[in-house]
Design a protein around this nucleic acid. Sequence first.
DNA 1: AACAGTACTTAGCAGGCGCTGC
DNA 2: GCAGCGCCTGCTAAGTACTGTT
Length: 564
Amino acid sequence: MPDLGNSHGLLCVCSRWEEEKKEDGIKWMQLEHRGPYFFYYDGKPLKLSLATEEIATFYAKMLDHEYTTKEIFQNNFFHDWRKEMTSEEQEIIKDLDKCDFGEIHKYFVDKNEARKALPKEEKQKLKEEADKIQEEYGYCIMDGHREKIGNFKTEPPGLFRGRGEHPKMGMLKKRIMPEDVIINCSKDSKIPEPPEGHKWKEVRFDNTVTWLASWTENIQNTLKYIMLNPSSKLKGEKDWQKYEVARRLKDVVHTIRAQYRKDWKSKEIKKRQRAVALYFIDKLALRAGNEKEEGETADTVGCCSLRVEHIQLHPQLDGQEHVVEFDFLGKDSIRYYNKVSVEKPVFKNLQLFMKNKDPSDDLFEHLNTTFLNKHLQDLMDGLTAKVFRTYNASITLQEQLKALTNSEDNVAGKLLSYNRANRAVAILCNHQRSIPKTFARSMQVLQEKIDAKKKQVEEAQEEVKKAEDEFKDTKDSKAEVNVEKKKKLLKRLEEQLARMNIQATDKEENKQIALGTSKLNYLDPRITVAWCKKFGIPIEKIYNKTQREKFAWAIDMAGEDFEF
DNA sequence: AACAGTACTTAGCAGGCGCTGC
DNA sequence: GCAGCGCCTGCTAAGTACTGTT
């Protein structure tokens, strides 16, 4: 049984094909299998054609996932699967419920186990092979510099699983062939060779874009790209530029806020809607909310695409006035739920916008992101809706760090402050994660450790007392030394306990919050670099290796007095 | 203004690797 | 030396924003 499901194509898609070039007559160098496995239809074993079998394996591999039980997933899969069947197979296989993928599933589970159980040397060998491919295909030369490529493999075929209630879940994602791939490079460079017997879709020489290769995927009919790693000069400069735009917003944000407050009272309803939306984007860090094609994607919204059903107005709630209750699915179908007290004119406007509308009607029916962004561009060069997220995230980090960091704290304490500042931003941007499966358990383990440590501290306290008493009685220098020794021990234990308590607090506060996204995409790294320098925190405590590579520009340039 | 197409950033998750504590 | 766990990395989906065409 060939492993049809795992074959990634490489950028040049070549390596896999090249790898397989053998001497004349030699078809393979190694072959290991378990004989045929059976696919059962309606209780009877059925031999599938190669293409049909491959798609069956895609489904079989996913059997452990809940989404294979969803009707949309099953229907999409079955529809696409049947399209690839031979006419004989189509005649037989008419009902997914009669398909038994159990044996195929087991085959892959076993195979996975076998791979995990491989001896160390074998694993080492596999790793070396992967490293070799990385070395060969993972880099490009741009303007004389060797730069790391972000993703140099084409995506393997499989079944599409979108996020949330995606109408296309279960559809067949087809294998990318060289004939699908457009190569972009410079004319005078050595143009990558397509695999033997194959041709590229196109080779172009466009130096106004950054991608090295692209193809169109068949699910949404959109382009996918091979681009550089964030550590590259090209990406780094772009990143820097992004934060510079956000910093310029800092200078004009007060004017802009004054402007949208004025526009809340505009005679034009369109302006009012724009002003209220902008208030949300600024205050709540909502995304812009482009229109999406209905039925093509999960039903998610951003600010401009909010519908009446996504907010509830409460003139009074929990002792606050003019409360707007938001409840909608945003990017990646992550729920945004928030109750916010807004300024009175905003509340009045929302009442007006919602009047005589159905729940499914647009809240801002006169507004779209193009119109909003055009306005923002007039207010500041380079300003778009997403800049507000970057700006508010970064300025929040800076303010929170200022407010929370205590220079008397030890490193652990300062790191907790950093994490809390980071967390404030993640909450603002609604960056969530599912609670880790092992959370409750590992929390309990930590708590037990803390309890044990507490006991040790108490014991040490008594030891100190005892030693002191003995010294009082004897005035013996030996006893004096002992007191010091016991005190030292106590201090160490207390510090350990404090560290553990910090850790527990941090963990608890973090269970449903994802810090990574804001750290990587929203927080000007120079703020962090400056903070580290100011408080003598090694940068490695905040940024891991990958992050340090991505933020090399900031680590290079920011001093301890950097201000966002 | 609507629309399609393109290029790029932002996003959460799975799985594996390496570190820590026994 | 090993098991368990947490962090890192790779993966790829899902956004934003802009351009050109009709």
